[in-house]
Design a protein around this nucleic acid. Structure first.
Length: 228
DNA sequence: GCGACAG
DNA sequence: ATCTTGTCGC
């Protein structure tokens, strides 16, 4: 999987903001029916100081069986600044995506899609670069207001920014803290929620993201241990 | 100026 | 994100 759009990753926050305002214009929001999905990917990043480790996992849908796992490691300069997470995780993620053999029908990210100050969170940003359908599955809020959804799995409520619905607060597991789902690129809000729930079995996180999270931690542990 | 703030 | 074991509760 190769990006269709490329750009520098070591930017000032001012230049990064200008780039976000350009890339956001390319976003497209369309439905992605469950019936059209065969391959789903999950991506996550782990850090050790300025070293970033990424894992991209490919699963067959709807059984959610893992069929490939890709890893990458890179030194990053960009610090963590709320609203600019993609500039810290993007480069290492693309390096991992480059190793993917099958092009996934949709990619789930650990972070927001358009539920972002400038509507270009991690999932939206990488979606534009890869020109792929993407979904943001964040564990906490960055922007927007909401009321908590009912306690049962599947319950949802709107994530609002002023008068705009920028995402859904989704209960992916009964009696457990909800997830913040928002579309990235080539994705509608309703499809993002349906797909996320279809990818969730017995845990809070959807299987693609959960798998990526587990494996990247293991990859980082082994990589750092081998150095010594 | 003060508080909020994905991972 | 990361530092970190056991423990209470569904």
């Amino acid at each position: 999987m190769t990006p269709v759009v490329t750009h520098e990753w070591s930017l000032s926050t001012t230049a990064a903001k200008a780039l976000q305002n350009e890339l956001v214009k390319k976003l497209v929001f369309t439905d992605l029916p469950l019936e059209s999905i065969q391959w789903v990917a999950g991506a996550d990043v782990a850090f050790h100081h300025d070293e970033a480790f990424a894992a991209v996992i490919l699963l067959h849908f709807p059984e959610l069986e893992c069929v490939q796992e890709c890893y990458a490691r890179v030194r990053v300069r960009f610090p963590y600044v709320p609203g600019f997470l993609s500039f810290r995780e993007g480069e290492v993620l693309l390096k991992a995506f480059a190793q993917l053999e099958h092009t996934p029908d949709v990619i789930l990210f650990d972070g927001h899609g358009i539920a972002h100050p400038r509507r270009l969170g991690l999932a939206a940003h990488l979606g534009v670069l890869l020109d792929s359908p993407t979904i943001g599955c964040a564990k906490s809020r960055l922007v927007g207001s909401y009321i908590l959804p009912a306690l049962e799995k599947g319950a949802t409520s709107n994530l609002m920014d002023q008068n705009e619905v920028i995402g859904k607060v989704v209960r992916t597991r009964t009696n457990v803290r909800p997830l913040f789902i928002s579309p990235g690129h080539r994705m509608s809000l309703t499809s993002a929620v349906k797909i996320s729930l279809a990818c969730t079995s017995r845990y809070r996180l959807p299987e693609p993201t959960r798998q990526a999270d587990r494996r990247v931690a293991e990859y980082k542990r082994i990589a750092l241990a081998q150095q010594e």
